[in-house]
């Protein structure tokens, strides 16, 4: 039947797409547990030696530690900024609002590479270059835009009457924000935080320009990578992916329902 032909074709394509998307992940995980010095076939047997080496060496673990300080902090600050601004943009009208909205999306459009060069110049002038603080400061501006987009999406679903009802019942503006708007925006806030965290966690080029000896994880991996092929990278890759899966499950629960909601639902 014709119907089945198209649907069958679609599913076949989907299978190929999944294979393409997952191939690197499968390779990463598989060879983190294989004795092969260079990933390839035949397989040379199961081992945990790369994990052991990863922890013995400590460089990548230390970098992971740096990232786990910078990224949650940057994501938190970005989310707070995004919530405050998202609330104001949703509620108020003011001259220059369109311009501001455009300005806010610019950090998404301008390649991080260019921002990295710019940050480097400026931060060097104020003697901040080469510190984790520099990475934190720059990441915040980069990830505020996506966080803001998600929080705005959530707040735009809030009927204006909800906040007005709170005022009408006697709530001050602060009380209305704290007791009505904040609970309403919570799924968006959590989703924004997770997305901001993911972006910061994965950001390479700006961190490469502005971080010094305290490398973040992507920069440290890159340094190892350009030097030689080291199966410890498979191990750290598997660990990072396992962490991401935890984040992903949280996202599935919190974020996706609000992102892909049919207009009529």
């Amino acid at each position: 039947m014709k119907r089945n032909a198209w649907i069958g074709l679609g599913r076949l394509w989907l299978g190929l797409a999944y294979a393409f998307m997952f191939l690197p992940l499968v390779v990463l995980i598989l060879f983190s547990l294989q004795a092969n010095r260079f990933p390839g076939f035949p397989l040379q047997g199961w081992t945990l030696q790369w994990y052991a080496r990863l922890f013995d060496d400590g460089t990548l673990i230390a970098a992971l530690g740096h990232t786990m300080i910078v990224s949650p902090a940057a994501a938190s600050v970005a989310t707070i900024i995004a919530f405050l601004a998202g609330y104001a943009l949703n509620r108020f009208t003011f001259p220059g609002k369109t311009a501001l909205l455009g300005l806010v999306t610019l950090p998404i459009i301008i390649p991080p590479l260019i921002l990295g060069v710019g940050f480097l110049g400026l931060l060097a002038r104020i003697h901040l270059s080469g510190t984790l603080l520099a990475v934190f400061l720059t990441h915040v501006v980069l990830i505020t835009a996506p966080a803001l987009a998600i929080i705005q999406l959530r707040l735009s679903q809030m009927p204006k009457a909800l906040e007005e009802a709170a005022w009408d019942l006697g709530a001050s503006e602060w009380q209305a924000v704290r007791r009505v708007v904040l609970p309403f925006a919570l799924p968006g806030i959590l989703g924004a935080w997770l997305l901001a965290f993911t972006f910061s966690f994965d950001e390479f080029i700006i961190a490469w320009f502005v971080s010094g000896f305290d490398q973040t994880l992507p920069v440290a991996i890159y340094s190892v990578l350009v030097a030689a092929i080291d199966p410890s990278l498979n191990a750290i890759g598997t660990i990072v992916f396992a962490m991401s899966c935890a984040v992903l499950i949280a996202l599935e629960v919190l974020l996706i329902p609000y992102l892909i909601r049919k207009p009529d639902a």
Binding site: A17, P39, I221, G237, F241
Partner: peptide, 19 residues
Amino acid sequence: AIVPFWSSYVLRLYAWQTI
């Protein structure tokens, strides 16, 4: 389909390198 987004880009490139 979008799971790979949540694994590190550098590591994905490394994996492609080995592939």
